[in-house]
């Protein structure tokens, strides 16, 4: 696959008339498919498909040392890999700035919402539980923030909690769950032709002027990230925020349905 782009003119014409290439409304997500427990070896895992964007999140829990500035709290570490197979644009090598941004935005939402109470991960002096969240992008078709957050959150919500027996960590044959406090969701909006639309695909991302991601837990805004050079009015931000709370219900019900399966 070498060429997969429409033209800027084409995308702008569509968006300005309130339409999209795949027939969606401006405030509509693509079809979302979510599966939990795809990697049995991981303490938690989930695969999220947003249209053709395919993201796998894996959660591992182990023992480590606390951060120097937070001696009584456990650690959460989030990484994202834009696998080179996922797009002709991605390359082999160390994580790109894009991958790091994706990881940090996902991490911020989960952390700020207090999904995991890090003080409950404290074991004893210099010994805490560490939670590793790894987001693997298998196929890229836009909006890695929302697909990544949805997969990571579902992986956490379905994760089992290992047990410490003496010096060794027991990971098998347990039915204790990782304690979580709430469900955070992420909504990403793009702006092109002076219109705001949700869940941009790869073509739309290529030609959008600006982008904003809003994470909330259903009650409060928990993290935001604006990207790219274009600007955004206060009114547009207000519209996106309102819609992000409406979409929280939609995303949360998909997550809950998956957890119940």
């Amino acid at each position: 696959m070498y060429i997969q782009s429409a033209t800027k003119e084409f995308i702008n014409d569509l968006i300005s008339s309130g339409k999209r290439e795949d027939g969606r409304a401006l405030d509509q997500y693509r079809e979302i498919k979510l599966t939990k427990g795809v990697i049995e070896n991981a303490e938690g895992s989930a695969m999220a498909l947003f249209g053709n964007t395919k993201v796998l999140a894996g959660v591992k829990i182990g023992i480590g040392e606390p951060m120097k500035d937070k001696p009584n709290e456990g650690n959460i570490m989030t990484s994202a890999e834009l696998l080179p197979m996922a797009s002709a644009e991605y390359e082999m090598g160390p994580p790109s700035p894009d991958a790091i941004e994706v990881a940090r935005v996902i991490d911020r939402g989960i952390r700020a919402a207090g999904m995991i109470d890090t003080s409950s991960l404290f074991i004893e002096k210099d010994k805490v539980w560490e939670i590793f969240i790894d987001v693997y992008v298998l196929n890229y078709d836009g909006n890695l923030f929302d697909a990544g957050t949805t997969a990571a959150v579902t992986a956490l919500l379905s994760a089992r909690m290992p047990k410490l027996e003496g010096e060794s960590v027991v990971r098998e044959g347990l039915n204790s769950k990782l304690k979580t406090n709430n469900t955070v969701t992420s909504c990403t909006f793009a702006k092109a032709a002076n219109k705001i639309f949700i869940d941009p695909d790869a073509n739309e991302e290529e030609f959008m002027d600006t982008r904003i991601t809003i994470a909330n837990d259903g009650k409060e805004i928990r993290a935001m990230q604006k990207g790219l050079w274009g600007g955004m009015t206060a009114k547009e931000l207000e519209y996106a925020t309102d819609l992000s709370f409406e979409k929280h219900k939609e995303l949360k019900s998909i997550i809950n349905k998956t957890l119940g399966e």
């Binding site: 990697i39 070896n41 894996g58 591992k60 182990g62 990484s79 890999e81 082999m92 560490e130 790894d134």
Partner: peptide, 20 residues
């Protein structure tokens, strides 16, 4: 031909693997 074989850090039942 270029080839990249890689184990995901969550691929094993044991500890979290190192990335890269």
């Amino acid at each position: 031909i270029k080839c990249r074989y890689m184990m995901a850090p969550f691929s094993s039942l044991e500890e979290h693997g190192r990335t890269g």
